[in-house]
Design a protein around this nucleic acid. Structure first.
Lengths: 338, 338
DNA sequence: ATGAAAGCGCTAACAT
DNA sequence: ATGTTAGCGCTTTCAT
């Protein structure tokens, strides 16, 4: 441990400046010097100190990412997509989980900022409680919100058009013959939760179908199972249930079938996200697909842009998702091939 | 951006040394100075630069963690446990995924080392190909392997006793009446994969039951589904299948039942890990429980120790797991209550 | 093309 | 108790 560029320079018989130039290759050196430095570095097992470089350069080559939780397949997918996107830019990702707690989130942002990340990608866990920390962070460093976003203030965002997505789902089940619908989602602490519910209500109202009271819990399989039970216990099943995400849909599916309901004959079920086990559950889930790769690419691109020009209008990039019809929803009564 | 401790000192009318002392609180200062410095820092929005501190202190307050993939619920669970364990130690976790590729893993280790992490926790993706990178890293910084480990060389490790775990599973299904058994696991690229298979074979041989050829693929739900199909197609179902992890078990369960086999009446299925959806699949999965919290705590503890005394014998801490009997395996024929 | 030296922001001697 | 200063490892002027 601890061989520095000074050691390399000495061993090569040159100045540290030459050693630095030779090592970085960003400036001209005699081939002879380059050779000697390279060999000395190899022999000594020299490894550049990124901390010192960061202090000197005033840039760390890292970007921080904070998501509500890595237990949710949607977030692990999007993290992997961002990581992949950054892969060849020489930028490392510092990943943090807020565990769905605004306080933890604020702390995480704080230490990321202290470590001088060059940028931040965040999916704020709470649409209200996350506001101060996110705005504060956005003031200090380029920041883009991905998927979830806060309300009020201005900070860049890229995500999916949640309302358009659920609208697709609602119209689909209705064209399949549904006359009564219900929404099973999460409590309204995040933008995703709110927009998906409001989009659902608007689309269903527009279509004039009966709307049962929404079932709001968590974005988890457990909650999906519980929501299914409640539907069963209520004694009256709607024709279709639109879910806040796939986890809920899969859980709901399970308890519905366990309770003897046939899907999609008795009731249609549609999810949201299309990640994880959606394709592999039984039967395969109809769902709204989030273009995760595209979202990640867009977020990274935007982050680069933010760096360039500072005070410029906040951008909000809403990508329109598409519906993937599989086997948990009844095909269109109109006979339109999907 | 860019208010330094010098700015704070100037604003408070004291020297940088006093400002530093006041801010850290690690040395005595007049209450009056403390007060002035605190106010100046607050007014200026001073935020300490962790990069500079790290360079000066020769310690970054970070530890790196690299796991094969964050898509696997077992790894996300163990990552969360480690993060939780570190929570109050002022140490941050730099999380990386190797995507199950030794090359990516080596690159990740390289940059973590360059960023001067204080320690490393790694679950090497490949029992052989990961050897050089892991050994090299272990030479430069305290390192402990968690869960998976490399073969040869000496590096600390904490994990579960894989062979004991599968032995528990095998003996359990046999006591439930199984006379023919099969193992559905992953190809033998990791220590976990190898030890679980060898443990299975040894335990089954000892019991004298019939052993069908193992089904080896990936540690994924997909592979579990495929393995189930192959079993069905083979025309002959064993009395029990012991799985390399829960993902495989859940997938297998699904295709077995889809194919008309009754679980556990026709065939018993046992998993390994007890994380994620094991409790929530249908029926709830009998499995071998990995004490994740305990493992994480032990790894962190060991890492602290490694720091202290350098050249000391490598430790291998194998925690004995326990079996959790749920509803995918037949109860003991001997009538022993579990 | 190469070397000497300044300086990134911080803390811990060392002096006062 | 407080101030002055060296130095962590690196890159980049600025001379030569």
């Amino acid at each position: 441990m601890g061989v520095t560029i000074h050691d390399v320079a000495r061993a090569a018989g040159v100045s540290v400046a030459s050693a630095s130039r030779a090592l970085s290759g960003r400036r001209k050196v005699t081939p002879e010097v380059a050779e000697r430095v390279a060999r000395a570095a190899a022999e000594l097992g020299y490894q550049p100190n990124a901390v010192a470089k960061a202090l000197r350069d005033q840039t760390t080559g890292t970007i921080g990412m904070v998501v509500p939780g890595i237990g949710n397949p949607f977030f692990t997918t999007i993290v992997e997509a961002v990581e992949h996107e950054l892969q060849n830019s020489g930028t490392d990702l510092l990943l943090c989980s807020s565990r769905y707690e605004p306080q933890v989130e604020a702390r995480r942002l704080e230490t990321l900022l202290a470590r001088r990340v060059d940028g931040l990608i965040i999916s704020p866990c709470d649409i209200e409680a996350s506001v101060p920390a996110v705005l504060d962070a956005a003031r200090r460093v380029p920041l883009v919100q991905l998927d979830r976003h806060i309300e009020g203030g201005t900070a860049d965002w890229v995500g999916v058009d949640d309302e358009a997505g659920v609208t697709l789902a609602v119209e689909h089940v209705i064209s399949g013959g549904a006359r009564s619908v219900v929404f099973a989602g999460s409590r309204l602490v995040s933008s995703s939760a709110r927009l998906r519910l409001s989009g659902f209500e608007r689309a269903a109202a527009r279509a004039g179908v009966e709307i049962l009271p929404p079932l709001l819990g968590e974005f988890t399989l457990e909650w999906g199972i519980e929501a299914g039970r409640r539907l069963l216990d209520s004694g009256r099943l709607p024709d279709a249930v639109v879910c806040g995400n796939d986890e809920i849909a899969v859980g709901l599916l399970r308890s519905l079938r366990f309770g003897g309901a046939r899907v999609p004959e008795d009731v249609s079920v549609v999810g949201f996200d299309d990640v994880g086990h959606a394709t592999m559950c039984d039967p395969p889930l109809s769902t709204v697909r989030q273009p995760v790769e595209e979202m990640a690419a867009e977020a990274v691109r935007l982050l680069g842009q933010v760096k360039a020009a500072d005070p410029r209008p906040a951008q909000r990039i809403a990508i329109t998702p598409r519906l993937v019809v599989r086997q948990t929803s009844r095909p269109s009564a109109a006979g339109v091939a999907e």
